[in-house]
Each structure stands twice: as C-alpha cells, then as structure tokens.
Design a binder for these strands. Structure first.
Lengths: 196, 196
DNA sequence: CTTTTATCTGAACGTCTGTTCAGATAACCT
DNA sequence: AGGTTATCTGAACAGACGTTCAGATAAAAG
C-alpha cells in the first residue's frame, strides 16, 4: 500500500506535533517512541520522517515554537505605563499563558537536557530574553522608587519560578478560578517587591 | 569469572545509588540504561540485580531516600518561637538543603511520571507533608496577626516554588554566596507575607 | 486524460533494552 | 583447613529502538 486517501502534509504535520507534544509531556522525550507518535496520528513510522529529519529535531521544533509564541505573545500584550502596572500585566500574562499551554511549558523546562548543545543554547537565549523583560520592569521600578528590592536579577528569577509553579497544582474547575489565582499571585508579587 | 576481589555489598550498594543518582539527574531516567549504571560502578549488569529488583524500584528508592532525609532534616532543624522566625528558618533551610542535594531534588521532581501509581502516591504524600509544614507556619502567622496573606495554602506553594527555583541558577563560586542568596530570598519572602 | 509529484506503506537494518540465570570465586564462619 | 554463602561474570533472551528506502498510490498539474 502507499499514499492513503485524504493524506495532506498540512494536516499530518500539525497532528504529528500535537501528538508528540502530548506524549512527550506525559511520558518524557526518551520514553516515547517514534512508533507511538505515529500510532497516535494513525500513520506508519516512516511517514514521520517526511516532517522531521529525526526525533531530536522534532523536540526542538516544539520547544522553539513555544518559546517564540511566548515571546511574541508578551510583546503584543498591552502594557501599563507605570512599573507597577507593567509588573501586574506580566504576572497575569505569565500565569494565563502558561496555564493555556501547560504541556509545552512542561516540555520546554524538562527536556532541555535532551537537546543538542546548539539547540540548547537557542532555547536558553529565548528564555533569557523573557527573563530580561521582567528584570527591566523591576529595575525601572527600583529606579522610579516604586519597588524596594535589592537585586532585580534574582528577584526576576524568583518571581518567574513562583508564577510558573502554578502549573504544578492548578486545575480548571477547582477551588479557585483563573482570575482568583491571578489576583492572589499578583498580591503576593506586589507585596514582595514592596509596591504600595 | 565470578566474584571479584574486594567485592562487598556495603560498598557496591551505595556506589550503585550514587551512580544512578548522577546519571538519572544528568540524562533522565528513561535515557539511562542499566548497563551505563553498571559501567560507572565498574561491574557487569547482572550484578545490579543483587541490589534492586528492577530499574523502577531503584528510582523509587532514590526518591524515597531523598524525601525522607528532607523531612527528617527539617524536623531536626532548630525552629524559632515566632511565626516570623520559623518562616525565616524554613526559607534558609530549604535553600541550603536543596542546593546540597541538587541531583536528588531534580530527580524527585522530574521523574515522578516514571513511578508506578503506588510509588507515586508514596512520594506525593511525603511532599505534601513538607508543604503542610510551611502552610502551618503561614496559618499561625496569619492567626497571630504577623502575616497578611489571604490564602496560606497557595502562598505555601508559591514560596516553595520560588525557593526551589534557586537550584536552576545558583552555582557555587558565582556572584553571590549561599548566605547572600538566603538573605535575598528571605527578604523577598518576608515582604511577600507582609511581615514587618 | 496523462504525467508528475507528494505522501505513505511495509519491511528491513543493526543496535540497544531490561531482565534472568547457571556457574565461578572471594569472603566469611566454624 | 574446609564448608558455606554472598557476590559477581558472561552469556543469553525476546522485544523495542531510531532510521532508511524501494515501491505503491492519491492528489495536483498540465
């Protein structure tokens, strides 16, 4: 047999990425076989290699796609005009965006060690750009006398770790709504940086 | 050939656990083979099965050992007599202990999905005990009027995520000493909970 | 309608996987 | 010194792994 009815690269391509994302997040990159991914898509293994040169590149593509959409989504996010407003926007954005893409967030953090050195550097550079965006908000706030923090660099890492932690426990339909969680965390961040 | 000169279970056992810890942390549970572990110890694969019934149990043993030593180390840690003092002790303890055992911390978080359901529950229960210890400090502080936080449960998760995040960037010999990092984070936690 | 091209199958490849076990030998016990 | 036991080797098992590729066929192009 050969090409199947209704086979299209613009359909199979996304389905492969979706299946890989789900499986990698669930079981880990190394524990997922190409045959499993193919099975989820409903295709034979060999077909995957029309869409990726190898397994490792497939992983990188997922991470890269995620980091790029994170960065561009933040750039398009409406920002406040004071450091405090910008910090609130960042906190709320980070929680919402990460909860919407929990699988990609999980993978982009957990599977870094499965990247080749150059691919690792590419992802890390994007992550640093995002961290720097927060660090600049904090530095601006300190310069303007709005925040009282002694080390904006460390504070930015602390805030991001704290906000990303929501992903480990939040479940839709639980005790708290997304908006309640965002408000709770913004309150904590606000107090932490000493904003009024 | 057979038993080698100087072979002892009280030597090989710990060496297997140490090697497994290092390799699992470096490459991930699924990516590490029993032969790799054996090679690191300087022994043939079959010998490992004198020390663990299977690979999965070896992983669980490492995690369980880590969680138990975390819990008992915290119990033996000198506590303050006020909520604020106890919170400071917790923050400093958490950072120090986690940095001292970075590999075990990493594994105990990353490899949860490679555990069998019952082993997963066992580790999760220990983690929850630890989280509850912090939550109680926060609740006590709120009751005593020392802290201003609206949700101690969420705040405990936020603080732990924030403190654990130190492991992702701190390197001994870098810009900041351990003590400086502990002080920086304690300042942030203190402001976050609204302690004076 | 015919030709070209994109897409997929099915089978194969060499290698690696976790685990088992009979046999060998060092270490311990009496 | 001799017997027992704990520890390790070396080989084997069946199955899974990532990747390749010739051949088949649906879809697109002319």
């Amino acid at each position: 047999m050969a090409r199947t009815a209704g086979s299209h690269s613009d359909i199979t391509g996304p389905r492969i990425r979706t299946a890989a994302l789900r499986l990698f997040a669930q079981s880990g990159f190394a524990a997922v076989s190409m045959r499993q991914i193919a099975g989820e898509v409903g295709v034979q293994v060999g077909a995957l290699y029309n869409y990726t040169p190898d397994k490792q590149t497939l992983l990188f593509a997922l991470m890269d796609e995620h980091m790029q959409s994170l960065l561009s989504a933040w750039e398009e996010e409406p920002k406040g005009d004071t450091p405090k407003a910008r910090l609130e926007a960042f906190a709320r954005f980070h929680i919402r965006f990460n909860l919407e893409r929990a699988e990609a967030v999980f993978i982009s953090y957990m599977e870094l060690r499965n990247l080749t050195p150059e691919n690792f550097l590419a992802i890390e550079a994007q992550r640093r750009r995002y961290e720097t965006a927060l660090e600049e908000i904090l530095s601006d706030g300190v310069a303007a006398g709005a925040f009282t923090i002694s080390d904006p660099k460390v504070a930015s890492l602390a805030i991001i770790a704290m906000l990303t932690g929501v992903n480990t426990w939040y479940r839709a339909g639980g005790r708290l709504s997304l908006d309640q969680v965002q408000t709770l965390y913004w309150d904590m961040v606000r107090q932490m940086v000493g904003a009024d």
